[in-house]
């Protein structure tokens, strides 16, 4: 199965306490090949990195809740 692509995204510099230690991070909606979309926190963002719509997200594995984790 192909990796999903970024349908849209934002780089966050402000958030709520549970996510403060991850700042800055990328919130994104990813789109699978079949058109289904889902929300994701994209790992691996460093200041100055280019992020764009249409870019592929890399599958990293599953978290403890069985959620898929993706990175830039």
């Amino acid at each position: 199965m192909k990796n999903p692509i970024i349908y849209t995204y934002s780089i966050l510099y402000s958030t709520f306490p549970a996510f403060t230690d991850k700042l800055p991070y990328v919130s994104a909606i990813l789109e699978r090949e079949d058109g289904t979309k889902f929300p994701s926190l994209l790992e691996g963002f460093n200041e100055g990195m280019e992020v764009e719509i249409g870019q592929e997200a890399k599958f990293l594995g599953m978290d403890e809740n069985g959620q898929e984790i993706y990175s830039l």
Binding site: T8, Y9, L12, T15, F16, F19, K22, P39, L41, I53
Partner: peptide
């Protein structure tokens, strides 16, 4: 589905803005 991924309201509307720009 959304807040547990670290989404905030600025993020949601920012994602609309980036899609709008696109």
């Amino acid at each position: 589905l959304e807040a547990t991924q670290g989404f905030t309201f600025p993020a949601n509307f920012a994602m609309m803005a980036n899609r709008y720009f696109y």
